[in-house]
Every structure is written in structure tokens, then in C-alpha cells.
């Protein structure tokens, strides 16, 4: 006897319940109850269970159990998966190529080429000798403690994912800024991408892409990190002075001229602020993505957690902090240069 037997009888549904009673496997609770000799105690009122699927199933076999429901979801997902894969595989393939190619390049080039190249990039982006010096010291230190390869792997993944995020996010942001409807639809999606614990969307991704492909972690990182570029591109373009836009219209600019000659340049400080955040979020995600085979410093952190190798975890964690500071400083410094070049 289960709690809700009476309810189904009262509703006259007993027959329907019996009809296709499945002799399926029992739940653990049922098993326990049975082994207890099926003692038919009346449940005290205070302990009345919530009428959940499992609970109702005990009184009425026609009602599915929760584990049946989860397996439906799984089957549903698996059945659409092939279709999804057919579409997603080709369009995400370039991501795999880019990630693998970039990793190959960074790992193949010798350290005495890569480090000076990075320093040159920092110099051109920031024109700050202090920052160049900081980056040099940091990388030489990481190399000295044999963390050069994972650090450069992490950096390589961040570069590629940021590149993809900007290449996709800026156009999406532009479209959003032009259509209030699109903005209304997209904002909740962006909110969700940003607030969902990252583990949650790793799960469907694992089923969609094989763990051996780099696009798995690439997609995970991009989904998470693309949000700020989109948001700030949209915001930046919407914040462009209405009077200037009106002047552009009054002088007969085409929407192309307006976009590239007025809106994007004036929104650039905001867009670059979005890129800075995207880089930082890529870094955060590339560590978590080591769970799904992303190489880099995250793997070492993971090893530290799994094997309780405290030292490995702490040192690689420190390496990540170092990278974070460098990336933030360098992007902020180049952002400031853009702002200074474009006074208001």
C-alpha cells in the first residue's frame, strides 16, 4: 500500500492504473519495503510524501517513474543528436583546425622565438616598456620552472577562442543593436550563458562532440566567453551620440558608411572593454575545460586536485594567476591607448 492509493481509487482511475502495469524493475525503496516483509503501516500524516512521479508510481503503475523520465530525455537528446551533429560538425570544424594549428605552431616554434614574438606584440599593443618587462620576466620564470609548455598552450587556446569570440560576437552585437526584437530575444540567452554553472553545459557538449576533438573545449570556452563582446558591442553602438548619428544621416551616409565610419569607431572603447572581459573569461574557462581534455595549465591544476598533489596544483594555479594579471594589464593598457586616441 502506498500513500496515494486512495486518491486514484477516489478518482476512479484504478482500472487505468492497472491496465498497462509494467513489471519493470523496482525502486530501491520498494525493494526495501518488500524485504521488510511488506509491513503495511499507515504513513503518519506528518510524513506524507510529496506526490512525485516515483511516489505516484507506487500507487498507479501507469505513471512513469523519474528514472524512466530521465531516460526519455536521454533518448530524445540522443535521437536529435545525430541531426545536430550533421549541422554542427562541419560548422565547428574550423575551430578544431584553428585550435590544433595554433597549438602546433606555439609548441613547434622554439621558446626563443615565441617569447620575443609575444614581447613584440605586447609592445605594439601597449607601447609600455614596463609591461614588456613584466611579460618577459613572467615567461622566463614560467619557463624556468618548466611550466612554459602548459602556459603557452593555455595562451594559444585563449588567443584562438578570443579571436573566434570577437569574429562572431561583434557582428552579433551589431545586429542586436539594430533590432530591439533581437535584443529582447538575445539578452535572456546571454544571461543564461553567463549564469549557468559551466559544468552544466559541458554535459550536452560531451555528447555532441567527441572528447578527442579540440572543438569540444573550444565551443565550451567560446559559449561562455563570447557574452561580453556581444553585450558591449550592442551597448556601445546604442550609446553612440544620437546627434552624431543624425548628422551622419543628414549628410546622406549609407548604413555601411555609418557603421564603419561612425558607429564602430565611436563604440570601439566599449567593444574593446568587451574583448578584455572575453579574454579573462576564456582564461577562466580554459582551466575548467581541462576536464574535457583541454591542454594547458588547467591540466596541472586538475592533477593537483585529483591526486592531492598540493605543490603541483599551487604552482600551476600561480601560473594561471600570473597569466591573468598579464592578459588583463596588457588589454587594459591597449584599451587606454584606444581611449586616448579617441577623445570625447
Amino acid at each position: 500500500m502506498a500513500t496515494y492509493d486512495g486518491m486514484f481509487e477516489a478518482l476512479g482511475l484504478s482500472d487505468w492504473c492497472e491496465k498497462d502495469s509494467s513489471g519493470g524493475p523496482m525502486t530501491m525503496a520498494q525493494l526495501l519495503a518488500q524485504s521488510n516483509g511488506g509491513a503495511e503501516e499507515k504513513t503518519p500524516f506528518w510524513e506524507t510524501p510529496f506526490p512525485s512521479l516515483d511516489e505516484l508510481n507506487q500507487s498507479c503503475d501507469a505513471i512513469a517513474r523519474t528514472r524512466d523520465m530521465t531516460s526519455w530525455v536521454e533518448n530524445l537528446f540522443l535521437s536529435v543528436k545525430d541531426g545536430l551533429k550533421l549541422v554542427l560538425d562541419p560548422i565547428t570544424q574550423p575551430l578544431s583546425w584553428a585550435l590544433d594549428g595554433s597549438l602546433w605552431l606555439f609548441e613547434t616554434l622554439p621558446w626563443f622565438v615565441v617569447i620575443p614574438a609575444l614581447l613584440l606584440i605586447v609592445w605594439f599593443a601597449t607601447r609600455s616598456l614596463a609591461l614588456v618587462g613584466g611579460v618577459a620576466v613572467s615567461f622566463l620564470f614560467l619557463a624556468f620552472i618548466d611550466h612554459y609548455t602548459p602556459a603557452i598552450q593555455t595562451l594559444s587556446i585563449i588567443f584562438v577562442c578570443t579571436g573566434f569570440s570577437v569574429a562572431l560576437g561583434v557582428p552579433i552585437g551589431i545586429l542586436m543593436s539594430r533590432s530591439d526584437t533581437l535584443q529582447r530575444i538575445s539578452l535572456p540567452v546571454l544571461d543564461m550563458l553567463q549564469t549557468l554553472p559551466t559544468f552544466v553545459y559541458l554535459i550536452p557538449l560531451i555528447f555532441l562532440f567527441s572528447v578527442t576533438e579540440s572543438k569540444l573545449y573550444g565551443v565550451a570556452i567560446i559559449l561562455y566567453a563570447i557574452v561580453p563582446v556581444i553585450r558591449l558591442t550592442d551597448l556601445g553602438i546604442r550609446l553612440v551620440d544620437k546627434d552624431v548619428i543624425e548628422a551622419a544621416d543628414a549628410f546622406g551616409m549609407t548604413s555601411r558608411q555609418k557603421l564603419f565610419g561612425v558607429q564602430i569607431p565611436l563604440a570601439l572603447p566599449n567593444i574593446m572593454a568587451g574583448v578584455n572581459q572575453t579574454i579573462m573569461m576564456s582564461l577562466a574557462m580554459v582551466v575548467i575545460a581541462s576536464l574535457v581534455s583541454a591542454p594547458g595549465l588547467g591540466v596541472l591544476v586538475l592533477r593537483g586536485i585529483r591526486n592531492l598533489e598540493l605543490g603541483v596544483g599551487l604552482v600551476s594555479g600561480f601560473g594561471i594567476v600570473l597569466l591573468a594579471i598579464l592578459l588583463d594589464r596588457v588589454t587594459k593598457a591597449s584599451l587606454n591607448r584606444i581611449n586616448a586616441a579617441q577623445p570625447r
Binding site: 546627434d243 552624431v244 548628422a247 543628414a250 549628410f251 546622406g252 565610419g261 579617441q342
Partner: peptide, 22 residues
């Protein structure tokens, strides 16, 4: 045609100047 009109026949001066800051 409207764009031609704005480009060639009419120009406008604004209260808040509306110059391109960059």
C-alpha cells in the same frame, strides 16, 4: 534619391554641433 538629396542639395548645422569626435 533621398540620399542624393541629402548629399548634394541640402546640408545641416546642428545645435550641439554633432561633429565626428574621432
Amino acid at each position: 534619391q533621398l540620399r542624393r538629396l541629402r548629399q548634394e542639395k541640402m546640408s545641416m548645422v546642428f545645435q550641439k554641433f554633432a561633429l565626428l569626435p574621432h
